[in-house]
Each structure stands twice: as structure tokens, then as C-alpha cells.
Computed example of a mutant assay.
Amino acid sequence: MRLHWIVAGIVVAAPLGAEGLTRAAASRFAGQVLKSVEREYPNKLDHTMAGVKDVKGPRELHPAFYGCFDWHSCVHGHWMLVRILKTFPDLPEAGGIRLALDRDLAPENIAAEVAYFVDPGHRGFERTYGWAWLLKLAAELRGWDAPEAREWARQLQPLTDAVVAQFEAFLPKLSYPNRVGVHPNTAFSLDLALDYARAAKDAKFEALLTERARTYFGKDRKGPMAWEPGGEDFLSPCLEEAALMAKVLPAREFKPWVEGFLPGLLKTGLLAPAVVSDRSDPRIVHLDGLNLSRARCLHALAAGLGPRDPRAKALEKAALEHAEAALPHVVSGNYEGDHWLATFAVQLLGERR
């Protein structure tokens, strides 16, 4: 259902997404994700087996995050549940969310996840997309001043510490960033990790992340927006980079940087939403996620320019068009998208709220 605004005495329909995360949308998304985090199969494991002893099912390997088709989707599904519970603590689904978080973040489950992470045979597991979402979950819990949130954060902390250690060991060795529209995208992972570093007041980790962002992207010019999107992208390589740099650079540095990096987009503000031809295809449905993540980045880009910049209005318009193209399809009845798209919707709408 679309929100309606009254403008000059005339009732007009506002674009989907303009109102931010509504109670009705939060309830619908929470209901879907609560079912998904408990659904073990189908499942796409990222798992290296050294022998027969390693032949195990998802729940045995990952007792905290076994659902939602894959580990990273289950992690960010839990982030979405925390964000919704924090925003709407009296939703009908609130009791189910609390039960799921109590169950899945239990100390014994997190201990098993840590053991998996530190096993040398699993080096590179979920690097760096899953790592980043785990830190985003930890940041969300840290940013919620409630006894239950503090307890869940405390229980999650051993895994959080293991992931920070993985980032700190890996990033100095990553000579070149990954500039792709899918999971290994470096800019997206740095963005989420930076949220955690700032929430945790971890100055050492924040310094590493900002140094890496500047080193990887600080000299970039003329980002190839014309090459986007790829056929299975759910992230925009250029826009994710711009959104990260809006967070890293002070305004006096960001404006000249982005003017050099996205001159065409800033000149016109024109960017057409991606067309999704088959939502039952697990790769093509990624493009719904691309429309949502593009909308989030366009909002971030407009905010980085500032409300007085005349270019921001066109970017905001493009963001709403992308949101409107994707939001009706977040829960479509196809598990290929239903197990993960609600997270991208809440990430977008929650920041708009």
C-alpha cells in the first residue's frame, strides 16, 4: 500500500520508500525472516572438507547461523530482526524475534561458530561479505541501549572479536580491492565494518579501515557507471565505493572526489532501475537487491553532497525510483529472493526513517 501525501490540497501518491520503514512493512519482513532463519534446507554451504569427518549438515556446522540458504544471509537476517525489534518493540512478531535471538546467539552456539572460524582449514570462510554482516549485527546490538541487547552483544562478542582479527590480518595483504557487484565487493564490506568500529569506539580498527578505503579508492576517477549493472549484481561497484567515501572523507574532500569519480551521474542524476526478468532465478533476482542497494547509495551520495547542493534532488529522485521498482517484490513467494531481500529493504528504509 502506497503512502499518500497532501500537496496544495491535492492527495498524491508518494513513491514507495519515501516514508521509510513502516510498521506494516516491518511486520511483514519480520514474519518472513523468522521463518527463514529456522529453515535449514535448501542450503548453499561455503565449506571446505579435509576428510570424511567434515561431512556435516548446516545446523551441525553452524548452530547459530544455519538457516536462510547460506551463512551470510542468516547473519544479516538476524541483523534485520534486531533492527526491527529495536525500532518497533511492540510488533506482533517481537516475541518470536526475542526467542530466535536467545536461541541462536546462545553462548554454546557462538563458541561453535568461533571454533569454525579459527580452524586453519576454513581460512577465507565468508571473506569479507559475511564478516562484514557479522560486524553490522554486532554494531546494531551495541547501538541499542537495552538490557537484552547488551546481553546478546556480550554473547556474540567472541565471534565479533574473531572476525575483527580476521579483518586486521587480511586487509593489509589485500593489495587490490575487489570491484565487483556481488559478495567480494571490498567497498561494501569496509562500509559495514566501519559502522562496527565506530560503534565499538575501536580507534585502531577504524584507522585501518579508513586507511584502506583511502588507499584503494582515493585516487579513483571516472568510475565506469556505463558498465553497470552486470547480469547478477546486487551491489553497484561504483555507488558502493561512493557511499563508502562519503562516510570516510570529510565534506571538503568528498565533493571534489565524487565530482571526479562520478561526473556523468552528478551532471544528470539519471540512472534507470535494473530490470528483473525472472524472480525464481537465484542469480537474476539479485537485481532486485541491486535496486535496493543502489537506492541506499544514492541517498548516501545526496547526503554527502548536502541539502543545499542542487544535484542532491535528482539523486534522491533516482533513489526513490529504484526503491519503488524493488519494494513490491521483497516477499514474492520465491525463496530465491525471499531469504535475503528483506534485509536490503530494511537497510534502505531504516536509514530513511
Score class of each variant (00 low, 15 high):
D309Q: 05
F29A: 09
L287N: 07
Q32Y: 02
S277D: 13
V114L: 11
H47A: 10
G95M: 05
I6W: 13
S36R: 08
K317H: 10
V346C: 09
A342N: 09
K204L: 11
G337L: 10
V180E: 15
F254W: 08
I6V: 13
L209D: 10
A193I: 13
E108W: 02
A226I: 12
L81G: 05
F234R: 08
L137Q: 02
F217Q: 01
V248W: 11
T48H: 13
P58F: 12
W257C: 10
A319N: 11
H286I: 08
F254D: 02
H4T: 08
G67W: 09
A115I: 04
V346S: 05
P224Q: 12
L3G: 11
A149V: 12
A169I: 00
L21T: 11
A200M: 06
P58Y: 14
L290I: 01
G95S: 15
V33D: 12
F170G: 11
F344P: 06
V330I: 15
L249F: 14
D195P: 00
L99C: 02
T128D: 07
L235S: 06
T186Q: 06
C238T: 15
L135A: 05
A207W: 01
F261T: 06
H286A: 08
W144N: 11
N178R: 14
E19Y: 00
L235M: 13
H122W: 10
L287H: 07
I84M: 15
L141E: 10
E241D: 00
F170N: 08
A115T: 07
M80A: 12
P107H: 10
M1V: 10
R127K: 14
V275T: 15
R103G: 05
V37H: 03
D202H: 04
L208S: 06
